[in-house]
């Protein structure tokens, strides 16, 4: 599957990355090379094989449904680039 520069630009938006023109060029080449390498997986017969998402296939690990202390708000906010005493501050989402 050939990977075009347009594809890379679309993926960059999905990935929330701003890429320079030079980065777009380089990444188009590099990703195409890697994807071509990965394409060899197509030759493996996986007809009846169940996908394996985890090395240890546990299911239904439950925790007790009780109230426990959590990170105090002040500490949760301490690393935020912008916050007030109540929450995180973000740029306007719906315009001015």
């Amino acid at each position: 599957m050939a990977l075009s520069r347009d594809d890379v630009e679309k993926v960059a938006l999905l990935a929330r990355l701003q890429l320079s023109e030079a980065e777009l060029d380089t990444l188009t080449d590099e990703l195409a090379q890697i994807v071509t390498y990965v394409d060899q997986l197509a030759e493996v017969d996986t007809g009846d094989v169940e996908p394996m998402a985890h090395a240890v296939e546990l299911s239904n690990v439950f925790a007790a449904d009780g109230v426990r202390p959590s990170l105090p708000r002040e500490q949760a906010l301490a690393n935020a680039p912008a916050h007030n005493e109540r929450g995180y501050l973000v740029p306007a989402v719906l315009g001015d």
Binding site: L41, V44, T46, V49, E50, P51, M52
Partner: peptide, 12 residues
């Protein structure tokens, strides 16, 4: 073609 396929090969 990629993610699901890789998970299957992972099992093999």
């Amino acid at each position: 073609a990629y993610y699901l396929k890789a998970l299957k090969v992972r099992r093999l």
